[in-house]
Nucleic acid binder design. Structure first.
Lengths: 376, 376
DNA sequence: CGGTTTGCTGAAAACGTTTTCAGACATTTA
DNA sequence: TAAATGTCTGAAAACGTTTTCAGCAAACCG
């Protein structure tokens, strides 16, 4: 009674015009309209069985009539869970992450979670600030992408005990300074596999063409691993055969390819750190009337489905970005629900054989390329 | 005094273990630690000038010590703004939208807004559900992408008076059933411009190669507009010259290209509805020893920066996806702040001349292709 | 028929903030 | 010196829910 007189008079005048002028029906309005208490309306919404049929009908009618939309913010307030997770990306300029995002979105949507996206533009300080903002916003968990973080980031995450999973993290970094569960792609292994494939096809003069290694640990891993693997096979790998392009477009790639092809001895095969580079390299070969794969074999490393657009279609190492996103999302949800996901999963890459690799034309190359027989 | 005895005893026992066991310092904890009221802490956070220096220092110290992160949910609760907006996409499988997302994210981040992303997988019913969820979550505004919506969607948006902007909407649809401010790309105009460019270069035998028109209004617009424009110039355009590929990969595109090139009379130029198609078409031409642009000119329509990877680099119509995202985000923010953005903006496309278009080899074709001189 | 159980309901507290209001001083003005 | 003004502060209300608790009937049990 007392309480009622206190709350009643405030009703009429309070709903003045907010900025949008939207009155937005609340649970109280529904309760009043249906002649029940707010508790009952809440019960109809969440545990309908606890409400006697007659009142339930009345409430449902009122809900429909006002077409009531519950306020998730208020719910989060009391449940202390937002059912939302935050994703921090290095950049969207590199479309590599898109399939992973799609998988994450799908996985979260299925579980009723929302996805907030932030790009830090490869700025670790910005990344940290965004993580902080996402924590402010009450995310139930965070998905961190890439390998370059400020040391404050793991500290922040730990202090606030926010569930988080890293994805696309370099293997050695993950082991070095672990930051919670991580999903990694075996970038090094992928290029080792690429080199192995070329080697198995008989190539002994193998070059490497890389995208810009600056600021992209995964590309750097691929590049260095390719070189290491070539040497591991006891093959020569002069500097001139380790080309780095400034960018992925046709022009930049061709310049790098020229450096590679213009040096005295020509390789019989090239391992690429990214599929996109194939297009430029193929252009350059065509300009020199070099047939692929007859005169030069090319193997990519699959960020994308780009390889299938090339001519000839590109033999490549498929990297499981979609699976990575899915795994990251699932592991994070597990973490949120107190199940412990694996600390570090490295997802398997896969050799996709198309038509850009063949045996070298002359067995001769196998000899000249050999440096020593028993190395490593 | 009374109030104090009421609130004190509840303190100790209440912070039992939540799921995460995270105690999370609240403004009350800070107030207690600094020996002031919560109001004062709040003032230090929001209007520091109102607090006398000594207490302010104490509060700041406490804030740092607990490394307090304010609860944005509680703030939203009382301010009734989330400082977040929701983006609904048709799909992420088509990377066309990615540059727009990047621009949106950037624009929102700058304004201190968060971005929630939902993909409806081209399912209008799902889109509607996602819009509802985003409203539940208290988004300050919604960004809707694409042209295919359930009629319930505009109704929902209107009923709840939620600021929203549509992007990538077909022009005629936008005018037909407007759904608030819209940012459109002039897909029809783009292909008209493409055809005009070919025509201006002397081509009179112009064919069209399109990506799948099913489920993609923008592609359909481009396709139909190209045909209409060809006829507008008084040129013939037999069905065999209007090819539709099932997909964008090399194989599918080549099959469609074959249909086009195998019919009796060969075109001297092809307008594409998407840059990606160029790669397959170029492959097919190469297989037939058709030189581009000598034997066949090709013009794309630019979803992406794909054209620069082609050989020869593709002359294309650039579509301003980045600008679209930026404009959509800005207009939405304007709307949220009660400024009225334009109802419908169509962003200008732009001809990008690279190397895939030249004058037709023989003036002969100009004659045979002409149907009537004065049409339209 | 008295007591227990059961089923359903509403009042009120709680979530973590911001904001309003009035009170406590300190300072200025008349 | 009294009054008026100004500066700073804390209590409490409010935001829209969920959940706890106690109360009230009705049904059941002996």
């Amino acid at each position: 009674m007392m309480a009622e007189t206190r709350s009643k008079p405030s009703k009429g005048s309070k709903r003045a015009s907010t900025r949008t002028g939207a009155p937005k029906a609340t649970i109280k309005d529904i309760a009043r309209a249906a002649g029940v208490s707010v508790a009952t309306v809440s019960r109809v919404l969440n545990t309908p069985d606890l409400v006697v049929a007659k009142k339930r009908q009345a409430v449902l009618r009122a809900l429909r009539r006002h077409d009531y939309i519950p306020n998730q913010t208020a719910r989060s307030m009391i449940s202390r869970r937002s059912r939302a997770i935050g994703l921090i990306l290095p950049t969207l300029a590199n479309p590599v992450f898109v399939p992973a995002i799609a998988a994450i979105e799908q996985e979260l949507d299925r579980a009723g979670y929302a996805l907030l996206i932030n790009c830090c533009e490869r700025d670790p300080a910005r990344e940290l600030a965004q993580a902080r903002t996402l924590i402010e916003r009450g995310m139930d968990g965070l998905l961190i992408t890439g390998s370059e973080h400020l040391p404050d980031l793991p500290a922040l995450l730990a202090r606030h005990r926010i569930p988080h999973v890293s994805q696309d993290v370099s293997q050695d970094i993950a082991l070095d300074k672990p930051m919670g569960p991580s999903i990694g792609l075996d970038n090094a292994g992928a290029l080792a596999a690429a080199v192995d494939h070329l080697h198995a096809c008989g190539h002994r003069r193998i070059a490497v063409l890389s995208g810009p290694v600056h600021n992209t640990p995964s590309v750097r891993d691929r590049f260095l691993s390719a070189i290491a693997r070539i040497r591991h096979h006891g093959l020569i790998c002069p500097d001139a055969w380790c080309a780095v392009s400034d960018d992925y477009d046709n022009h930049s790639t061709r310049i790098a390819a020229q450096r590679l092809l213009d040096c005295g001895e020509q390789p019989t095969a090239v391992a690429l750190t990214g599929d996109l580079l194939a297009l430029g390299l193929i252009s350059e070969c065509r300009a020199r009337s070099l047939d692929i794969p007859r005169d030069l074999s090319i193997i990519g490393c699959g960020d994308t489905n780009m390889g299938q657009y090339a001519d000839p279609p590109l033999t490549t190492i498929h990297m499981p970005f979609v699976e990575m996103g899915r795994a990251a999302a699932r592991d994070l949800l597990s973490l949120i629900e107190d199940r412990k996901p694996p600390e570090l999963s490295i997802l398997p890459h896969e050799l996709v054989i198309r038509q850009s690799v063949a045996a070298p034309a002359n067995a001769h190359s196998a000899k000249t390329g050999r440096l020593r027989t028993n190395r490593l």
